[in-house]
Amino acid sequence: MDIIKISIDTLIKGIGVLSFILILLSVHIVIKSSKEKAEAGKIKAYIQNKQDLWYQYFNDEIVLPVELIPNNDIEIKATEEIFLAYIKNISNSTIEEKIRKFSNQYLRQYYSGFLLSRKWSLRMNALYRIIDFKIDSLAPECKKLEKRTKLSPEEHFQLMIIYSMFNETDFIKEFANLSVRLSEYEYKKLLVGFKSEILEHLMHQMKELPMIYRHYFIDILGIRRELGFLPFLEKNLSHNNTEIRIRSLKAINEIGIVSNLDKYKPFLKASQWEERLMLAKILGAFPLEQVYTYLEELLQDENWWVRSQAAQTIGKSKDGKSRLKTFIATAQDQYAIDMAREVLGGEY
């Protein structure tokens, strides 16, 4: 039974040690949390005091007063908060420029310290702020960061944004033959901010891009409503890749300018339902008499989504509701009739 005795001894000791650590840590946390509380109070008070001055400065009522230059970390954090409220809510190039200048001058030191930090979270925070406040003087430091530490994908992405902001030409070269794999969200987020010329540049390189990036590229043309790319998108309608065709249809629909019906007719017999769905959407751009026969065919499609969309498109058109009523009265296809009923809503 000696083994058990020893175990009991060690166990008691172990619990004792752990309890001791527990007490120590508790004390640490208590101190820390009261410190944080005091800090939060100070930040709030600082914002209260200074926000009017900032308002006046941003609205060109006064020149930058000396008391707005932060003296310590708490004041910097408060200033940060004020800046963020402006940047996230107000678009005004003068204010942005003022924030940029101020940050480059007075906050540069603070953030460059964070960039050097070993903690991932602090580096991330610094990167976010460099982007928000456009602290371009820290761009070289960011570049160095890439060589110095092993970076997480999140940091890589933030760096890409920074490069795209501060060094466009280099960035485009890098972007065309990207080594890191970006997620859909990241890729699109970058593309959305680009100038049209850069997109055009990318369009010519389309064939060299990986297929998945080509998809994103087409999506973005739709999101940005890039009129100039309409011929390019229409050309893609006969692409042999289904996904490219579907996304091009979607983008064209987003742009909303559809002229030549003949270009879209073939999709009536498309094998993929998504293509027929997009067709049902696009047909809404034409006068109903011109396309009703096609829509009626789609209303009786084998796919639920296609039927639903066709009914909606008809319902939205002028005289569409009466057409649907006639359809309900004469048609055989119960699925299609249900769909028409839904669109008619309370009117039927």
Partner: peptide
Amino acid sequence: RKQYKLDKNAS
């Protein structure tokens, strides 16, 4: 610890 003090509101 990795996420400690990360400003989540930013992202």
